[in-house]
């Protein structure tokens, strides 16, 4: 079986700053992969490259055997709306929209009718335990409540891959555990693959597998490239 998503020799610089210096990885259908490593090692950059948000300077990102780097911005943006879900640490809900409108948005963009989109969105809010917040705007919700809504929005299109960057980094332990538990449960139910960026080993423990980045390259041992051999 070939991988669902793979990156080959991904290089990405920000001006003179190298963020990724040749990273290879594969993600199989339904697999939950944690990406860990110290601050600034390139985790978020890697996630953005894999999700087609950033274009690598060199190397390829392959989704279902297609090199998405060759696609137009419009095609990649369609891919992100339909097959991918993205979840960040905070601040991704549209402040002017209510929770249910926020969650319905990806469905509307994908062409669903208004009534249907709201119905499905309401179901997802319920699944994440925030059905009662449907008519509230993000400004009146706690961080944990916003993150549950954002999770519902990231999953509402039933993506094949969920990209999550420190999704519970701003939450207390118990709330973080509930949100993560939901992400994992839904991913397992729907066969969604998850790329989970995190600092915390307790979060990485939810994944099937862990990839450690260090200074823009993979550390195959998970630790300590720094010791001279």
């Amino acid at each position: 079986m070939s991988a669902l998503l793979s990156g080959t020799s991904i290089v990405r610089n920000y001006g003179a700053t190298p963020a990724l210096r040749g990273v290879d990885l594969t993600v199989d259908e339904g697999e939950i992969v944690a990406v860990t490593g110290p601050s600034g090692c390139g985790k978020s950059t890697l996630l953005h490259c894999l999700a087609g948000i950033l274009r690598p300077d060199a190397g390829t990102v392959t989704y279902r055997e297609q090199n998405i780097g060759l696609w137009s911005e419009a095609a990649r943006s369609r891919l992100r709306r339909t097959e991918f879900g993205v979840l960040f640490q905070f601040g991704q809900l549209v402040p002017e929209l209510t929770a249910v409108e926020n969650v319905a948005l990806p469905l509307l963009l994908a062409g669903s009718g208004r009534r249907e989109a709201r119905g499905v969105a309401a179901e997802w809010l319920d699944r994440l335990g925030v059905a009662d917040l449907a008519e509230q705007r993000p400004g009146t919700m706690s961080g944990g409540q916003q993150q549950r809504c954002a999770t519902a929005r990231a999953l509402v299109t039933q993506p094949r891959v969920l990209f999550a960057d420190e999704p519970t980094g701003a939450l207390d332990v118990l709330t973080g555990e509930q949100v993560l538990g939901e992400i994992v449960r839904v991913a397992r139910e729907h066969g969604t693959a998850v790329v989970l960026v995190t600092h915390a080993s307790s979060v990485a423990a939810y994944a099937d597998r862990e990839i450690v980045l260090r200074d823009g390259v993979l550390d195959p041992t998970g630790l300590g490239l720094g010791v001279a051999r």
Partner: peptide, 16 residues
């Protein structure tokens, strides 16, 4: 340290 980390991680996964 590398070997111990890996053992710790798999135990943590089990418990999770």
């Amino acid at each position: 340290l590398v070997a111990q980390r890996s053992a710790h991680m798999s135990r943590m996964r089990e418990l999770t």
